[in-house]
Amino acid sequence: MNDVIRLQADLGTSLKKAREDAGLSIKELAAKAGRVRDVIYRLEAGKDVSVASLFAVLSVLQMTLRVERAGLPTLEDVQTRFGADEEE
């Protein structure tokens, strides 16, 4: 998995998919990460959590976080995110 994450919702979607691919329930992931279930719900919903909680969950899912300059989104990125305008 090599997702480009620009919004918290994107991160939530990626984490949920990784959790499901790993065959873990929210309860199991929370226990392995040493966090309460609410942290997992919040992460997957794109809500705020502590950086420590994020890294604990990433560790359990065997994922890393890479930070790089974003630059401007491409036209394709914008169309994918907001839908392409249909010409009439």
Score class of each variant (00 low, 15 high):
Ala33Leu: 01
Val67Arg: 01
Val78Tyr: 07
Lys17Tyr: 09
Leu43Asn: 02
Leu61His: 01
Lys17Asp: 13
Lys27His: 14
Leu58Trp: 06
Gly71Pro: 03
Glu20Asp: 12
Leu24Ala: 10
Arg66Gln: 15
Leu15Val: 11
Thr74Ala: 05
Lys47Gly: 12
Thr64Cys: 13
Gln79Met: 06
Ser14Gln: 10
Glu68Ser: 15
Lys47Ser: 14
Gly71Asn: 00
Ser25Gly: 02
Glu87Cys: 11
Lys16Cys: 05
Glu44Ile: 03
Arg19Ala: 08
Glu88Ile: 08
Arg37Leu: 06
Ala22Asn: 08
Arg42Pro: 00
Val51Glu: 08
Lys17Asn: 11
Ile40Gly: 09
Leu61Asn: 00
Gln8Tyr: 08
Ala56Cys: 13
Ser50Leu: 06
Asp21Val: 01
Asp38Gly: 12
Ala31Pro: 10
Leu58Asp: 08
Ala31Asn: 12
Arg81Glu: 10
Ala18Lys: 09
Glu28Ser: 01
Ala33Trp: 02
Ser53His: 01
Gly83Tyr: 00
Val78Glu: 09
Asp85Ile: 09
Lys32Phe: 05
Arg66Thr: 13
Ile40Gln: 08
Ile5Lys: 07
Gln8Pro: 14
Leu15Met: 09
Ala33Gly: 02
Glu87Ser: 15
Ile40Tyr: 08
Glu68Gly: 13
Val67Leu: 08
Lys32Gly: 02
Leu11His: 05
Ile40Pro: 04
Met1Gly: 14
Ala18Gly: 04
Thr74Ser: 14
Ser59Trp: 09
Thr13Gly: 11
Ala70His: 06
Glu88Phe: 10
Leu61Phe: 00
Leu7Lys: 11
Ser50Asn: 08
Leu24His: 14
Ser50Cys: 11
Met63Gly: 06
Val78Asn: 04
Asp85Met: 10
Asn2Tyr: 15
Leu72Ser: 11
Gly46Ala: 04
Ala45Phe: 05
Arg66Ser: 12
Gly46Cys: 03
Gly34Asp: 04
Gly12Arg: 01
Val4Arg: 05
Gln79Val: 04
Gln62Asp: 15
Ala31Val: 13
